Amino acid sequence: MKVTVIADTHMPKMAKELPARLVQELNTTDLIIHAGDWNSIDVLQCLAAYAPVKGVYGNVDSEEIIEQFPEREILHISGHKIGVVHGHGTGKTTEKRALDAFSEDVVEMIIFGHSHIPMVKYVKKILLLNPGSPTDKRKLPYYSFAVLNIDKEIQAELIFYQEKSS
């Protein structure tokens, strides 16, 4: 199963449409996971044209997004348990808040956003993934999102690109 993972789209403020490089992957994806800070329900409608969409809300999302999605979720995909949370809060790093959100659960992977800093790494036996942002790179040189290939194992790849538009 191919899963496209995004976070922090901040649309329409940071982009009026989905970036061309992201759309290229969406055309062949089986599932889309959004780790919060969509901003507008319109993002869900754009993504849903490509594949089923799962996700959570972030700290700047509209009431429509908050009503549609939970703060944290555990997805069961091809026999794997994957936690999804935005990661916002205070007092700790975003990574630590993401780990704490699932401290009472047994998950193989945690997907989070908020920091806009792309990352794939293991903490003990948990694969952590922050896809970065496809529309708001902040001070980083590239926009980013992630692609998961999930079968017996989870393979995660970050996709980096320089242009938001086609």
Rank of each mutant, 00 (worst) to 15 (best):
M1S: 13
M1Y: 09
M1T: 15
K2N: 14
K2V: 15
T4E: 05
V5L: 12
A7N: 01
A7I: 05
D8R: 02
D8V: 00
T9S: 14
H10W: 02
H10Y: 08
H10F: 04
P12E: 12
P12M: 04
M14I: 01
M14G: 04
K16C: 07
L18A: 12
L18I: 14
A20K: 14
R21L: 07
R21T: 14
L22A: 05
L22G: 02
L22M: 03
L26D: 13
L26N: 11
L26E: 15
N27W: 11
N27P: 00
T28M: 12
T29V: 12
T29Y: 02
D30H: 12
L31G: 11
I32T: 08
I33T: 08
I33Y: 01
D37M: 03
D37F: 03
D37A: 07
W38M: 15
W38I: 06
N39Y: 04
V43P: 05
L44N: 10
L44T: 06
C46M: 13
Y50A: 09
A51W: 07
A51Y: 06
V53S: 03
V56E: 03
Y57C: 05
Y57E: 01
G58N: 02
G58A: 02
G58H: 04
D61Y: 02
D61L: 01
E63V: 14
E64Y: 09
E64L: 12
I66F: 06
I66H: 00
E67G: 09
Q68F: 14
L75G: 09
H76A: 14
I77L: 12
G79K: 02
H80G: 09
K81Q: 13
I82K: 07
G83E: 13
H88T: 06
G89N: 00
G89Q: 01
T93N: 08
T94V: 15
T94C: 12
E95K: 09
R97Y: 01
R97V: 00
A98H: 05
A101S: 14
V106S: 13
V106Q: 15
M109A: 10
I110N: 01
I110C: 02
I110S: 03
I110V: 15
F112G: 00
G113S: 06
S115E: 04
H116W: 05
P118R: 04
M119Q: 12
V120I: 15
K121S: 09
Y122F: 15
V123D: 10
I126S: 08
L128H: 02
L129M: 15
N130V: 03
N130A: 07
P131I: 08
P131D: 10
G132V: 10
P134F: 05
T135W: 06
D136H: 08
D136I: 03
K137I: 05
R138Y: 07
L140P: 05
P141A: 11
A146C: 09
V147R: 14
V147G: 02
N149F: 08
N149V: 06
I150H: 05
K152D: 13
K152N: 13
E153A: 14
E153W: 08
I154C: 10
Q155F: 05
E157Y: 04
L158P: 14
I159R: 12
F160L: 15
E163H: 13
K164F: 08
S165L: 12
